[in-house]
Each structure stands twice: as C-alpha cells, then as structure tokens.
Write a protein that binds this DNA or RNA. Structure first.
Lengths: 227, 227
DNA sequence: CGGAATTGTTACAGTTTTGTTAAAAACATA
DNA sequence: TATGTTTTTAACAAAACTGTAACAATTCCG
C-alpha cells in the first residue's frame, strides 16, 4: 500500500521530474496543473501528502492550502509548499496557512524525499478521515472493517475497495470505466462487465436485512451509492 | 500545560537566544551543553520536542539522535537538528538518523518557531510507557517480558518486537512491508513471506489456552492485533 | 566446544478471490 | 406486444493468497 502523493504545480517540467522521482521511490503519484482542479481532486482522491506550488495560475497554492486546513476532513494531509521565492516572509506565510514544510526551488530531490519520508512517518496514525460514515454504513480504512447498522460485514478486497471508492463521493454516478480506473487501476485490462459482477457481490454482502438497496443502477451510465 | 522543549547545544549565545525566544512563546525550556548529559536528561525528562546541535563536544548530536530513535520509548519525540553546515550530505544524514527536521545556522527565529509548531501539532501521543496492556496481554519493555492473563509467555526477540509494534496501535492493519520496515528495519532485505512465518510463531506463542485468536489476518492487506 | 534457540527461505496444500462467460431477467421504445 | 439493448445472476476455472512444516544457516550461551 504505497503512499499516495498529489502534486499541484503548473510547470510541466517540474511535474515530470517529480513524478519520475517519486514513482521510483514507489509512491503513487497524481497531479494537477491548476488550483481549482487541485482542490477538487484532492478532496476526491484524498492523498497521503501534497506537494503544492506556492503560486498557481487560477487559485493560488496558499488559497488551496488554507481551504484544506479549514476542513476537518482534509486538514490532516501533510502539505509541502514548493516556492520559488526564498524570502522569509513567504516561508512564514506558508507555515501560517497550515503548510507542514516547504522547499525552495530549485530543490534537491534527495532532500525532498527525506522531507516527504519524515512527514509521512509522523502523520497521525488515526484521523477522522480514516473512518467514513454514510447513512447506516461505516467503513474503517485502518482496521479494514465495514459495518452496517453497527453490524460488521465481511467483504473481499475488491468489494472493500469498491465501497471505499463509492463512499468518498456518495450519490455520484460512476461509469464502469471510471470504476475500473479507480478501483482496479489505470493500466489493467479487465472486461467492463466484470464490474457488474463485483457490484452484485458488494450488494449481496451489504444487503444484510433487506433494507434499502444502497447501490443504484443507472441504466447505460453506471452505478452510484445512495442513501 | 505548555510543551516542553529540550535544547542540546554547546554555544552559550545560541542557547540564550533560543531560551529567550521560546519562553516568550510560552514553551517550557530546558537545555544542556554536551551530548552524554543531553541523552541522560532527555531520557529522564522526556520532553515534547528536541532542538539538537549537529555537533556536540563529546557525543555528537547525530549519535544522540540515533540512540534515541533506536529506543521505542523515545523515538516518538520529534527532533530538529541545528546544523551550521549547509551541505546536502549533512542534511540527508540528519534525516537518515531519524531527525524530523533541520535548520541551518544562522536561522530565523520565526522560521524555527513555525517549524516547531508544525512538528508539535503533528507529533504522536507518547507511546513511552514501560508497561503496556491490551486486553489480557501485558508487555514490559524494560524487562522484555510478556504476559497473558498474568502468565508469562516466552517470545523470541523478533516476536517480541512484532508484538511490541502491534500493541502501539492495536486493531490497525499493517501490511507485510510496513511490518518489515518497522520491526526488521528500513534497509534490510527480507522476503515478505517471512512475516507470515513470524506471525505464526507469535500466534503459537500467545495462544496459551486457545482463547481468542488475537492476531487477525486481513487478506491482501496484512495483519492486526485484535482484542 | 557443542547443543539449543533463533532466523529466513522455500515448497506444498488448502482456501478464497477473481475474471469470464452464457443464459435469464429487466428495461425502454416503437 | 415485440424487439433490441442493458443488467442480473449463476457457474466455473484460473489466479492469488495464506498457513504450515521442514530445512539450513546463524547466533547464543553454558
């Protein structure tokens, strides 16, 4: 289970470099080149650590940072600010907004890696984001347990990941392709019909006392988690 | 209850400055000017954070750091290295020995304060007690003895470390890689399946009177300690 | 030194999980 | 109602994963 690092940075060359470097360290990496998108994607993907450019075209990195730190759900994600300016004022402002560390461009890859490792090591073992509830469903990512009405339910690994993904954005409809990409992985070839089968297995598992269906089929579009 | 910060630093002028500054921020401050003494006092006082000079007259800061990080009781105390050298090699070595951050002298007081705040915010609650209990299990880190229902159990060194690690965060599921990193060490090459074998040995050892299983297997994820 | 304890590796068996397929069912629309 | 499309369901074989025992290498200790 590699740590997932999110990069918000508008210089393509830096992204490329970072991505190469971090993936070599076997982190899972995703990125985004502007602030609005970054905020959205971070809330969606909930990475383990964020590398954030101090300046971003539309919504500045500082703003994104502030926004995240205000939200209980996301303020535990450590953030490293990437800043081109060496001035002290900026550094302090980075910390003030809630950043956990910063590096000044151009930075040493090795040093960055060390800082990342240090932050990941220190990040809280349990945080509110690890236990997510939706209606009578509860999923604990730390203990890998799932409950319905406080009754534990046993799920296979794929079904767990599937539910975990759905619960991040309940009510949102995902196509089979989206589910394959997010639950199975990006470069894996699996039949789209396979999703149906796992949806069935998940349904079967969470439909303890034939209450509400919870997983909705949207014909010719996909599936969603409903209350 | 203000956070207690310990300073290990041999330049009196810096100590004075730091002390003045930190007490103004209403931290409780204590200090020491050489390595041997520092190590002793740290173990005695168990501060919340340490500012450690990279070079100390007798026992270097690096050595003190290493020593602390090896000890389960103290490795959760965040350490900021104070180094006069700006060279990358030193910085990296600081992180390697387990330091959580470093600043280069001369440093900005404001920046240091920010880094301290960030580290304190992020630091774990102490797992620094000698005797830890979890359900009917008791582990004494000093005497290295383990009891179940007050009956002593004999464990090999690896099994002891394994249980000790599990008991820090009971119920949390750890992957085999995480266990290898935390119990065996970071740069050691051991097959992941070896974990299974030691889990079995630990299970065998603690399953005295066939009570509860205690160690849970989470398929495709790892193991956890359960009540 | 010699025996006991500890350690990491491997192979095998047993079980669970997974993806695929095909048939049945459900749905939408003319 | 008839028809074509989409989803549900069951069954099955392949793949993945874990538990266990046995073994050799190493360390520990009297």
């Amino acid at each position: 289970m590699p740590a997932h690092i999110f990069i918000a940075e508008d210089e393509t060359s830096i992204i490329t470099l970072l991505k190469y470097n971090l993936e070599k360290e076997s982190y899972k990496v995703s990125f985004c080149e502007n602030g609005e998108q970054a905020l959205k994607q971070i809330k969606d993907k909930h990475p383990d650590l964020i590398l954030m450019d101090w300046m971003l075209p539309d919504l500045s990195g500082v703003e994104v940072c502030k926004n995240l730190k205000k939200d209980n759900k996301y303020n535990d994600i450590p953030i490293i600010m990437l800043t081109a300016k060496g001035e002290e004022e900026d550094k302090l402002r980075a910390f003030d907004t809630g950043a956990d560390d910063y590096v000044t461009k151009p930075f040493s890859q090795k040093e960055l890696n060390a800082r990342i490792k240090s932050l990941l090591r220190r990040s809280k073992p349990y945080s509110s984001v690890d236990v997510v509830e939706f209606t009578d469903l509860k999923i604990d990512r730390i203990t890998k347990r799932v409950y319905r009405n406080n009754v534990e339910i046993s799920l296979g690994p794929t079904e767990f990941k599937l539910l975990d993904f759905f619960i991040k954005n309940p009510k949102r409809v995902y196509s089979r392709e989206q589910l394959l990409n997010n639950v199975w992985g990006e470069n894996i070839y699996v039949e789209t019909r396979t999703v149906d089968v796992h949806i069935r297995r998940l349904r079967q598992a969470i439909n303890i006392d034939k209450t509400k269906p919870l997983i909705r089929t949207v014909r010719s579009a996909g599936y969603s988690l409903e209350s």
